[in-house]
Protein backbone atom coordinates (compact mmCIF):
# COMPACT_ATOMS: atom_id res chain seq x y z
CA UNK A 1 0.00 0.00 0.00
CA UNK A 2 2.62 2.45 1.09
CA UNK A 3 4.79 1.62 -1.87
CA UNK A 4 1.96 1.83 -4.36
CA UNK A 5 0.88 5.12 -2.90
CA UNK A 6 4.35 6.57 -2.92
CA UNK A 7 4.86 5.39 -6.47
CA UNK A 8 1.60 7.07 -7.42
CA UNK A 9 2.54 10.20 -5.58
CA UNK A 10 5.95 10.29 -7.09
CA UNK A 11 4.60 9.51 -10.54
CA UNK A 12 2.08 12.31 -10.27
CA UNK A 13 4.59 14.69 -8.86
CA UNK A 14 6.96 13.84 -11.68
CA UNK A 15 4.33 14.76 -14.24
CA UNK A 16 4.83 18.29 -13.05
CA UNK A 17 8.50 18.31 -13.52
CA UNK A 18 9.84 15.83 -16.08
CA UNK A 19 10.32 18.59 -18.64
CA UNK A 20 12.02 20.88 -16.15
CA UNK A 21 14.23 18.00 -15.02
CA UNK A 22 15.04 17.12 -18.63
CA UNK A 23 16.14 20.69 -19.26
CA UNK A 24 18.71 20.43 -16.44
CA UNK A 25 17.46 23.75 -15.20
CA UNK A 26 18.99 25.27 -12.11
CA UNK A 27 17.40 28.65 -12.28
CA UNK A 28 14.65 30.48 -14.09
CA UNK A 29 14.04 34.12 -14.94
CA UNK A 30 10.57 35.37 -15.77
CA UNK A 31 8.50 38.52 -15.54
CA UNK A 32 7.85 39.77 -12.04
CA UNK A 33 4.08 39.92 -12.55
CA UNK A 34 3.87 36.19 -13.32
CA UNK A 35 4.60 35.45 -9.65
CA UNK A 36 6.59 32.34 -10.42
CA UNK A 37 4.13 30.86 -12.89
CA UNK A 38 6.15 30.56 -16.07
CA UNK A 39 3.15 30.07 -18.35
CA UNK A 40 1.80 33.44 -17.19
CA UNK A 41 5.04 35.22 -17.82
CA UNK A 42 5.55 37.60 -20.74
CA UNK A 43 9.01 38.91 -21.63
CA UNK A 44 9.92 41.48 -24.30
CA UNK A 45 13.03 41.45 -26.45
CA UNK A 46 14.41 44.16 -24.17
CA UNK A 47 13.99 41.98 -21.11
CA UNK A 48 15.76 39.13 -22.87
CA UNK A 49 18.64 41.18 -24.17
CA UNK A 50 20.57 40.59 -20.96
CA UNK A 51 20.48 36.81 -21.28
CA UNK A 52 22.51 34.89 -23.83
CA UNK A 53 21.16 31.80 -25.57
CA UNK A 54 23.59 28.91 -25.70
CA UNK A 55 24.13 25.31 -24.67
CA UNK A 56 23.71 26.15 -20.98
CA UNK A 57 20.90 28.61 -21.30
CA UNK A 58 17.67 28.86 -23.28
CA UNK A 59 14.58 30.93 -23.83
CA UNK A 60 11.29 29.17 -23.35
CA UNK A 61 7.82 30.38 -24.25
CA UNK A 62 4.98 28.55 -22.54
CA UNK A 63 1.27 28.57 -22.93
CA UNK A 64 -1.39 26.02 -22.11
CA UNK A 65 -3.65 25.03 -24.99
CA UNK A 66 -5.89 22.33 -26.41
CA UNK A 67 -4.49 20.13 -29.15
CA UNK A 68 -7.16 18.92 -31.55
CA UNK A 69 -6.87 16.48 -34.41
CA UNK A 70 -8.69 13.48 -35.86
CA UNK A 71 -11.37 13.69 -33.21
CA UNK A 72 -8.88 13.85 -30.32
CA UNK A 73 -8.70 16.70 -27.85
CA UNK A 74 -5.96 16.96 -25.25
CA UNK A 75 -4.81 19.71 -22.96
CA UNK A 76 -1.12 20.36 -23.60
CA UNK A 77 1.56 22.83 -22.64
CA UNK A 78 2.97 24.53 -25.73
CA UNK A 79 6.66 25.24 -25.18
CA UNK A 80 8.23 27.47 -27.81
CA UNK A 81 11.97 26.99 -28.11
CA UNK A 82 14.93 28.02 -30.24
CA UNK A 83 17.05 25.58 -32.18
CA UNK A 84 20.26 24.25 -30.69
CA UNK A 85 20.13 25.67 -27.19
CA UNK A 86 19.94 24.06 -23.72
CA UNK A 87 16.30 23.00 -24.05
CA UNK A 88 16.27 21.76 -27.63
CA UNK A 89 19.42 19.77 -26.98
CA UNK A 90 17.78 18.17 -23.92
CA UNK A 91 14.88 16.67 -25.88
CA UNK A 92 15.09 12.86 -25.97
CA UNK A 93 13.27 11.67 -29.06
CA UNK A 94 11.58 8.28 -29.03
CA UNK A 95 10.30 8.62 -32.60
CA UNK A 96 10.59 11.05 -35.50
CA UNK A 97 12.92 14.04 -35.67
CA UNK A 98 13.29 17.53 -34.24
CA UNK A 99 11.30 20.37 -35.83
CA UNK A 100 12.82 21.94 -38.91
CA UNK A 101 10.00 24.34 -39.78
CA UNK A 102 7.97 26.65 -37.65
CA UNK A 103 4.79 24.61 -38.25
CA UNK A 104 6.29 21.42 -36.84
CA UNK A 105 5.90 20.07 -33.29
CA UNK A 106 7.74 17.55 -31.18
CA UNK A 107 5.27 16.31 -28.54
CA UNK A 108 5.28 14.18 -25.40
CA UNK A 109 5.11 10.40 -25.62
CA UNK A 110 1.97 10.68 -23.49
CA UNK A 111 0.16 12.05 -26.54
CA UNK A 112 1.19 9.06 -28.58
CA UNK A 113 -0.41 6.83 -25.93
CA UNK A 114 -3.53 8.98 -26.28
CA UNK A 115 -3.64 8.22 -30.01
CA UNK A 116 -1.80 11.05 -31.76
CA UNK A 117 0.34 9.93 -34.69
CA UNK A 118 3.54 10.93 -36.38
CA UNK A 119 2.86 13.19 -39.39
CA UNK A 120 -0.61 14.06 -38.09
CA UNK A 121 -1.85 17.62 -38.53
CA UNK A 122 -3.28 19.15 -35.37
CA UNK A 123 -4.87 22.45 -34.39
CA UNK A 124 -3.45 24.32 -31.45
CA UNK A 125 -3.88 27.66 -29.75
CA UNK A 126 -6.30 30.58 -29.65
CA UNK A 127 -6.38 30.82 -33.44
CA UNK A 128 -6.57 27.08 -34.09
CA UNK A 129 -3.33 27.27 -35.94
CA UNK A 130 -2.28 24.15 -37.89
CA UNK A 131 0.81 22.20 -36.85
CA UNK A 132 2.30 18.90 -37.91
CA UNK A 133 3.65 16.35 -35.38
CA UNK A 134 7.12 15.34 -36.50
CA UNK A 135 8.50 13.75 -33.35
CA UNK A 136 7.72 12.26 -29.96
CA UNK A 137 9.87 12.85 -26.87
CA UNK A 138 10.03 11.20 -23.49
CA UNK A 139 10.12 12.96 -20.13
CA UNK A 140 8.10 15.82 -21.48
CA UNK A 141 5.43 16.81 -18.98
CA UNK A 142 4.97 20.19 -17.43
CA UNK A 143 2.54 20.77 -14.56
CA UNK A 144 0.66 17.51 -15.36
CA UNK A 145 0.23 18.48 -19.03
CA UNK A 146 2.09 16.83 -21.91
CA UNK A 147 4.46 19.24 -23.60
CA UNK A 148 4.32 20.21 -27.27
CA UNK A 149 7.65 21.71 -28.31
CA UNK A 150 7.28 24.23 -31.17
CA UNK A 151 9.00 27.22 -32.67
CA UNK A 152 9.38 30.07 -30.20
CA UNK A 153 8.30 32.53 -32.93
CA UNK A 154 4.84 30.94 -33.08
CA UNK A 155 4.28 31.38 -29.36
CA UNK A 156 2.65 34.81 -29.38
CA UNK A 157 0.21 33.60 -32.01
CA UNK A 158 -0.65 30.44 -30.12
CA UNK A 159 -1.07 32.36 -26.89
CA UNK A 160 -2.82 35.25 -28.54
CA UNK A 161 -0.67 38.04 -27.19
CA UNK A 162 1.06 40.95 -28.91
CA UNK A 163 4.20 39.91 -30.76
CA UNK A 164 5.97 42.52 -28.65
CA UNK A 165 6.42 39.59 -26.27
CA UNK A 166 8.90 36.99 -27.46
CA UNK A 167 9.24 34.46 -24.61
CA UNK A 168 8.04 33.57 -21.12
CA UNK A 169 11.35 33.00 -19.49
CA UNK A 170 14.97 32.03 -19.53
CA UNK A 171 16.13 28.73 -18.05
CA UNK A 172 19.74 28.07 -17.28
CA UNK A 173 22.16 25.59 -15.83
CA UNK A 174 23.84 28.50 -14.10
CA UNK A 175 22.40 30.66 -11.39
CA UNK A 176 20.62 33.56 -13.00
CA UNK A 177 20.05 36.97 -11.44
CA UNK A 178 17.41 39.56 -12.26
CA UNK A 179 19.00 42.20 -14.45
CA UNK A 180 16.04 44.59 -14.51
CA UNK A 181 13.16 45.35 -12.18
CA UNK A 182 10.71 43.87 -14.69
CA UNK A 183 12.02 40.37 -14.12
CA UNK A 184 12.61 38.04 -11.23
CA UNK A 185 14.94 35.06 -10.83
CA UNK A 186 13.97 31.79 -9.13
CA UNK A 187 16.00 28.81 -8.06
CA UNK A 188 14.75 25.45 -9.33
CA UNK A 189 13.21 24.54 -5.97
CA UNK A 190 11.44 27.89 -5.64
CA UNK A 191 10.22 27.58 -9.17
CA UNK A 192 8.80 24.06 -8.71
CA UNK A 193 7.07 25.04 -5.50
CA UNK A 194 5.43 27.95 -7.28
CA UNK A 195 4.03 25.60 -9.89
CA UNK A 196 0.23 25.57 -9.46
CA UNK A 197 -0.85 22.68 -7.23
CA UNK A 198 2.59 21.13 -7.08
CA UNK A 199 3.51 21.72 -3.46
CA UNK A 200 -0.06 21.21 -2.21
CA UNK A 201 -0.23 17.90 -4.03
CA UNK A 202 3.14 16.80 -2.74
CA UNK A 203 2.41 17.66 0.86
CA UNK A 204 -0.95 15.87 0.71
CA UNK A 205 0.74 12.73 -0.49
CA UNK A 206 3.58 13.07 1.97
CA UNK A 207 1.05 13.36 4.76
CA UNK A 208 -0.83 10.28 3.54
CA UNK A 209 2.34 8.24 3.30
CA UNK A 210 3.59 9.25 6.73
CA UNK A 211 0.16 8.50 8.10
CA UNK A 212 0.19 5.05 6.51
CA UNK A 213 3.62 4.33 7.93
CA UNK A 214 2.42 5.33 11.39
CA UNK A 215 -0.62 3.08 11.04
CA UNK A 216 1.45 0.12 9.93
CA UNK A 217 3.82 0.63 12.83
CA UNK A 218 0.89 0.62 15.23
CA UNK A 219 -0.44 -2.56 13.63
CA UNK A 220 2.96 -4.21 13.82
CA UNK A 221 3.34 -3.20 17.46
CA UNK A 222 -0.05 -4.58 18.40
CA UNK A 223 0.68 -7.75 16.48
CA UNK A 224 3.98 -8.24 18.26
CA UNK A 225 2.38 -7.34 21.55
CA UNK A 226 -0.23 -10.06 21.18
CA UNK A 227 2.37 -12.58 20.07
CA UNK A 228 4.49 -11.74 23.08
CA UNK A 229 1.62 -11.90 25.53
CA UNK A 230 0.75 -15.34 24.23
CA UNK A 231 4.29 -16.48 24.84
CA UNK A 232 4.84 -14.93 28.24
CA UNK A 233 4.37 -18.28 29.93
CA UNK A 234 6.91 -20.00 27.68
CA UNK A 235 9.37 -17.20 28.20
CA UNK A 236 8.87 -17.45 31.94
CA UNK A 237 9.74 -21.16 31.85
CA UNK A 238 12.92 -20.42 29.98
CA UNK A 239 13.70 -17.67 32.46
CA UNK A 240 13.23 -20.17 35.29
CA UNK A 241 15.78 -22.39 33.59
CA UNK A 242 18.13 -19.44 33.84
CA UNK A 243 18.06 -18.28 30.26
CA UNK A 244 18.67 -14.53 30.50
CA UNK A 245 15.89 -12.19 29.39
CA UNK A 246 18.42 -10.40 27.21
CA UNK A 247 18.78 -13.53 25.11
CA UNK A 248 15.02 -13.86 24.72
CA UNK A 249 14.60 -10.17 23.92
CA UNK A 250 17.40 -10.15 21.36
CA UNK A 251 15.97 -13.24 19.70
CA UNK A 252 12.57 -11.65 19.48
CA UNK A 253 14.12 -8.47 18.14
CA UNK A 254 16.09 -10.24 15.44
CA UNK A 255 13.01 -12.17 14.41
CA UNK A 256 11.08 -8.92 14.22
CA UNK A 257 13.71 -7.47 11.94
CA UNK A 258 13.62 -10.56 9.74
CA UNK A 259 9.84 -10.44 9.56
CA UNK A 260 9.82 -6.72 8.80
CA UNK A 261 12.47 -7.00 6.10
CA UNK A 262 10.74 -9.87 4.36
CA UNK A 263 7.35 -8.16 4.68
CA UNK A 264 8.73 -4.98 3.16
CA UNK A 265 10.42 -6.92 0.34
CA UNK A 266 7.20 -8.77 -0.32
CA UNK A 267 5.18 -5.56 -0.43
CA UNK A 268 7.64 -3.94 -2.83
CA UNK A 269 7.24 -6.93 -5.13
CA UNK A 270 3.46 -6.75 -4.77
CA UNK A 271 3.51 -3.03 -5.51
CA UNK A 272 5.58 -3.64 -8.63
CA UNK A 273 3.11 -6.29 -9.74
CA UNK A 274 0.21 -3.93 -9.16
CA UNK A 275 1.95 -1.28 -11.22
CA UNK A 276 2.08 -3.74 -14.12
CA UNK A 277 -1.65 -4.30 -13.88
CA UNK A 278 -2.60 -0.65 -13.50
CA UNK A 279 -3.30 1.13 -16.83
CA UNK A 280 -0.38 3.13 -18.19
CA UNK A 281 -2.32 6.40 -18.05
CA UNK A 282 -2.08 6.27 -14.26
CA UNK A 283 1.22 7.92 -13.51
CA UNK A 284 3.33 5.68 -11.31
CA UNK A 285 6.98 5.92 -10.79
CA UNK A 286 9.18 3.69 -8.66
CA UNK A 287 12.06 5.68 -7.44
CA UNK A 288 14.62 3.22 -6.06
CA UNK A 289 16.12 5.52 -3.39
CA UNK A 290 12.62 6.46 -2.29
CA UNK A 291 11.59 2.80 -1.99
CA UNK A 292 14.73 1.99 -0.05
CA UNK A 293 14.12 4.95 2.23
CA UNK A 294 10.48 4.10 3.00
CA UNK A 295 11.41 0.43 3.34
CA UNK A 296 14.15 1.26 5.77
CA UNK A 297 11.81 3.62 7.58
CA UNK A 298 9.27 0.85 7.97
CA UNK A 299 11.82 -1.64 9.24
CA UNK A 300 13.26 0.85 11.72
CA UNK A 301 9.84 1.97 12.94
CA UNK A 302 8.64 -1.64 13.20
CA UNK A 303 11.68 -2.50 15.23
CA UNK A 304 11.05 0.49 17.47
CA UNK A 305 7.49 -0.75 17.79
CA UNK A 306 8.81 -4.06 19.03
CA UNK A 307 10.47 -2.29 21.95
CA UNK A 308 7.19 -2.32 23.86
CA UNK A 309 6.84 -6.13 23.72
CA UNK A 310 10.57 -6.24 24.43
CA UNK A 311 9.97 -4.41 27.68
CA UNK A 312 7.37 -7.01 28.62
CA UNK A 313 9.85 -9.79 28.01
CA UNK A 314 12.45 -8.05 30.11
CA UNK A 315 10.03 -7.82 33.03
CA UNK A 316 8.74 -11.39 32.90
CA UNK A 317 8.88 -12.89 36.35
CA UNK A 318 9.76 -16.58 36.22
CA UNK A 319 8.00 -17.17 39.51
CA UNK A 320 4.65 -16.85 37.77
CA UNK A 321 4.92 -20.31 36.22
CA UNK A 322 6.11 -22.26 39.17
CA UNK A 323 3.28 -21.83 41.60
CA UNK A 324 -0.08 -23.53 41.71
Amino acid sequence: MIFILSALAFGLSRENTTAVEAWHTNSVVMSKDADGNLSQSLLTADDLADYAVNQDQAQVALTPGIMKGAGLREGVMFVGINADDLVSRSITLTKGHLSQNSDELVVSDKLRQKGFKLGQTVELGINNQNFKIVGFAKDAEYNIAPVAYGDIKEWSNVKGVSNRFVASGVVSKKTLVAKSDQVKAYSKAQFLNKMPGYSAQNSTFLFMIVFLIVISVIVVTIFLYILTIQKVENFAVLRAQGIPSRYLALNTLSQTVIIMVSAVALSVILALLVSLVIPTQVPMYFDIPLILLTGLGLVVMGTLGSLIPMGIIARIDPVTVIGG
Binding site: A240, Q241, G242, P244, S245, V321, I322, G324
Partner: peptide, 17 residues
Protein backbone atom coordinates in the same frame (compact mmCIF):
# COMPACT_ATOMS: atom_id res chain seq x y z
CA UNK B 1 19.89 -16.14 35.92
CA UNK B 2 23.48 -17.23 35.50
CA UNK B 3 23.37 -19.08 38.78
CA UNK B 4 20.29 -21.04 37.81
CA UNK B 5 21.73 -21.80 34.42
CA UNK B 6 24.93 -23.18 35.89
CA UNK B 7 23.74 -24.95 39.01
CA UNK B 8 20.03 -25.61 39.16
CA UNK B 9 17.65 -27.91 37.35
CA UNK B 10 14.01 -27.03 37.84
CA UNK B 11 11.13 -29.39 37.31
CA UNK B 12 8.19 -27.03 37.36
CA UNK B 13 4.87 -27.93 38.86
CA UNK B 14 3.01 -27.13 35.67
CA UNK B 15 5.86 -28.75 33.67
CA UNK B 16 5.64 -26.08 31.00
CA UNK B 17 7.18 -27.10 27.73
Amino acid sequence: DQFRLDHIGFVLQSYNL
